[in-house]
């Protein structure tokens, strides 16, 4: 799937990838890829700036640990992040329903 198609949905996808618990950046990317059967395979490097943006917005919080001798930053959802994720889901349902209806050829109500 092309990156342009994700515009406007990336934040919700990243928040969803953190819903089950804390993850580091690479694990977030892997979770997105795995849950979509490889259809969403973002470049690793683009996930990190997006996570920083979400952290600045207060939707996730990060903490450092040391794993295998390397410093690792792990992120988890904040309460605001959970609310934002719920909002993104509602918005997506509305959007998907509207587009599916339009693309599915459902006839417009008769005007006569």
């Amino acid at each position: 799937m092309r990156a342009e198609a994700l515009k406007g949905h990336l934040d919700g996808l990243l928040l969803a990838a953190l819903e089950d618990g804390p993850r580091h950046g690479y694990a977030v990317k892997e979770a997105l890829r795995d849950t979509t059967d490889g259809r969403l395979d973002l470049p690793t490097g683009t996930v990190y700036p997006a996570l920083h943006r979400l952290e600045q917005a207060g939707l996730i919080s990060g903490s450092w640990s040391v794993v295998g001798g390397r410093r690792r930053r792990t992120y988890e959802l904040t309460e605001d992040g959970r609310r934002s994720l719920a909002g993104a889901r509602d918005h997506w349902q509305e959007f998907a329903t509207a587009i599916s209806t339009a693309l599915g050829g459902t006839p417009w109500p008769a005007t006569s």
């Binding site: 950046g25 690479y26 690793t44 490097g45 990190y48 690792r72």
Partner: peptide, 14 residues
């Protein structure tokens, strides 16, 4: 440095 450390962890894991 902190950003590079985080990126390094991701790249090395990959």
């Amino acid at each position: 440095r902190s950003v590079v450390e985080e990126l390094a962890d991701g790249l090395e894991t990959s």
